[in-house]
């Protein structure tokens, strides 16, 4: 592991001290790594254990409220919010990424890139509060699916644009030139040549956006509200339930029944987020070595 281990017997006090200091250094570094990874394993362990012991088929067939063991309203809500957020975010994010990569090598592109980074760095609660004053108070939508989906889309678009841009940058210029030489126009070059070649990267970005929208809480509190009923198909004037809400409010309830539901919800959310992230990393790595 360290070169100092292989040293012969130290010849002087100084050398001995250096060897000792080095070994202490390695132990400290190893401990640091352990302290970072151990909590992750503990989180996964605690949530999986408690989540699985609360697991039942009722989770998917009944809604919260009363004494049921159901999370149906929250599961449906998270799915619907995520689907609509992605429906808004994917075309905008990929389109913006195409512009930044293909035609954004100028001052305007630089400005858009910088402001996109600023938006990425903006705390999600600030975006949530913005949506609250505009959509809920200003437009009078009330807590609603539309406000929640738009807020999540604002959160995801800059990520997606940046990942798309990076993916398109990997496509060699010769492919673009060949396509233009065959008489293709801009739209054909991008849609038939550049985007297919960069598809794995773009899909990765979309999946990571999906993971973000499933795991987010703060921007939804002020936009989606909460409802004990399953989504009724309305886009405005109807609050929507979502899984992460169950986690942070039910764990504060005094009864074990609510705690069990909180862990079950946390297990579902963590499962989706970790599965997407591990899957994406494995596929990307596999693609690199192949």
């Amino acid at each position: 592991m360290s070169a100092s281990v292989s040293l012969k017997a130290p010849r002087s006090v100084l050398e001995l001290r250096r060897a000792v200091v080095s070994n202490i250094g390695w132990v400290a570094c190893g401990l640091a790594l352990l302290l970072v990874i151990a909590p992750l394993l503990d989180i996964v362990g605690v949530v999986t254990f408690n989540g699985l012991s609360a697991f039942s088929i009722q989770l998917f067939t009944k809604s919260t409220g009363g004494d049921t063991n159901g999370l149906l309203n929250a599961i449906v809500g998270t799915l619907v919010i995520t689907v609509f957020a992605m429906l808004i975010a994917v075309p905008i994010g990929i389109g913006a990424g195409v512009h930044l990569s293909e035609y954004g090598k100028n001052k305007l592109g630089g400005v858009i890139r910088f402001l996109s980074d600023v938006l990425t760095g903006t705390p999600s609660i600030v975006l949530g509060y913005f949506s609250y004053i505009v959509f809920i108070i200003g437009f009078g939508w009330g807590f609603s699916l539309a406000a929640a989906a738009i807020t999540l889309a604002i959160l995801i678009v800059p990520y997606l644009a940046r990942i798309t841009e990076l993916a398109l940058q990997q496509v060699p210029n010769s492919m673009r030139e060949a396509a233009y030489a065959l008489g293709s126009n801009d739209a054909t070059v991008v849609s038939k040549v550049v985007l297919p070649a960069a598809a794995p990267g773009v899909i990765t970005g979309t999946l990571l956006g999906l993971a973000i929208s499933v795991g987010e809480t703060a921007p939804l509190i002020y936009t989606a509200g909460w409802s004990d009923y399953t989504w009724d198909g309305r886009f405005t004037h109807a609050p929507v339930a979502y899984l992460t809400y169950v986690i942070w409010t039910f764990i504060d309830q005094p009864d074990a029944h609510s705690h069990a539901l909180a862990y079950a919800a946390a297990f579902l959310v963590m499962l989706v987020v970790l599965a997407i992230n591990i899957g994406v990393r494995l596929v990307v790595k596999h693609g690199k070595t192949a």
Partner: peptide, 13 residues
């Protein structure tokens, strides 16, 4: 992966 665990799950832990 520590970075992708949702904030609310960290709070639960």
């Amino acid at each position: 992966l520590v970075a992708v665990v949702p904030s609310v799950v960290f709070g639960l832990w």
